[in-house]
Amino acid sequence: MNRITELFQKKNSSVLSIFFTAGYPEVNSTLDIAEALEKAGADFLEIGIPYSDPLADGPVIQNSSQKAIENGMTVHLLFEQLKELRKRVSIPVLLMGYFNPVLQYGVEQFCASCAEVGVDGVIVPDLPMYEYEDMYQKCFEEHRLSNIFLITPHTSEERIRKIDQLSNGFIYLLSSSATTGKNLQVSSSTEEYFARIRDMKLKNPTMIGFGISDHQSFSKAAEYANGAIVGSAFVRLLDNEGYHDKIGEFIRALKG
Results as ranks from 00 to 15, higher is better:
residue 205 P to L: 03
residue 26 E to G: 08
residue 162 K to L: 08
residue 142 E to C: 12
residue 181 G to K: 12
residue 160 I to T: 13
residue 223 E to R: 06
residue 233 A to Y: 01
residue 217 S to T: 08
residue 246 K to A: 10
residue 239 D to L: 03
residue 46 E to K: 04
residue 96 M to L: 05
residue 93 V to P: 01
residue 91 I to M: 03
residue 41 G to N: 02
residue 29 S to I: 13
residue 180 T to L: 01
residue 139 C to I: 15
residue 61 I to S: 07
residue 65 S to E: 12
residue 85 L to Y: 01
residue 168 N to C: 08
residue 81 Q to H: 11
residue 86 R to H: 14
residue 107 V to K: 00
residue 196 R to G: 10
residue 125 P to V: 00
residue 253 A to C: 10
residue 220 K to A: 11
residue 59 P to M: 13
residue 26 E to S: 08
residue 213 S to D: 15
residue 100 N to K: 01
residue 103 L to I: 12
residue 246 K to V: 03
residue 195 A to R: 13
residue 15 V to N: 01
residue 132 Y to C: 07
residue 145 L to R: 13
residue 207 M to C: 13
residue 122 V to D: 09
residue 83 K to D: 14
residue 201 K to G: 09
residue 163 I to V: 15
residue 67 K to N: 12
residue 142 E to G: 06
residue 138 K to A: 14
residue 136 Y to G: 02
residue 139 C to T: 11
residue 158 E to W: 07
residue 144 R to G: 04
residue 87 K to E: 11
residue 3 R to V: 15
residue 229 I to V: 13
residue 214 D to I: 01
residue 55 L to G: 10
residue 244 H to N: 09
residue 140 F to Y: 03
residue 54 P to Q: 01
residue 236 R to C: 06
residue 111 C to L: 05
residue 227 G to R: 09
residue 141 E to L: 14
residue 195 A to P: 09
residue 243 Y to R: 04
residue 248 G to T: 09
residue 24 Y to Q: 09
residue 196 R to C: 07
residue 177 S to F: 05
residue 205 P to E: 00
residue 67 K to P: 04
residue 96 M to H: 06
residue 142 E to K: 11
residue 88 R to S: 11
residue 175 S to Y: 13
residue 3 R to Y: 08
residue 131 E to N: 06
residue 94 L to R: 01
residue 226 N to H: 11
residue 194 F to Q: 05
residue 85 L to W: 05
residue 78 L to Y: 05
residue 92 P to N: 05
residue 15 V to C: 08
residue 220 K to Y: 06
residue 124 V to F: 02
residue 231 G to Q: 09
residue 82 L to T: 09
residue 83 K to P: 15
residue 134 D to K: 11
residue 234 F to S: 01
residue 34 A to T: 01
residue 194 F to K: 06
residue 17 S to L: 15
residue 161 R to N: 11
residue 86 R to G: 10
residue 19 F to V: 15
residue 189 S to P: 03
residue 115 A to V: 14
residue 171 I to N: 02
residue 210 F to N: 05
residue 180 T to A: 10
residue 85 L to S: 01
residue 34 A to W: 02
residue 178 A to T: 06
residue 56 A to L: 14
residue 157 E to K: 06
residue 20 F to A: 00
residue 120 D to Q: 06
residue 170 F to N: 03
residue 36 A to P: 05
residue 62 Q to E: 07
residue 190 T to P: 10
residue 203 K to W: 02
residue 243 Y to T: 01
residue 69 I to M: 05
residue 90 S to V: 07
residue 157 E to Q: 08
residue 99 F to W: 15
residue 132 Y to V: 03
residue 172 Y to C: 12
residue 190 T to A: 15
residue 61 I to T: 15
residue 32 D to E: 12
residue 124 V to S: 07
residue 219 S to H: 04
residue 183 N to R: 02
residue 39 K to R: 14
residue 204 N to H: 02
residue 156 S to N: 04
residue 100 N to P: 03
residue 132 Y to W: 13
residue 206 T to G: 00
residue 189 S to A: 15
residue 151 I to K: 05
residue 176 S to Q: 13
residue 22 A to V: 14
residue 58 G to P: 07
residue 50 P to L: 02
residue 108 E to M: 11
residue 100 N to Y: 00
residue 54 P to N: 08
residue 88 R to L: 13
residue 152 T to G: 09
residue 19 F to T: 04
residue 110 F to T: 00
residue 192 E to P: 08
residue 233 A to R: 10
residue 133 E to F: 07
residue 126 D to R: 00
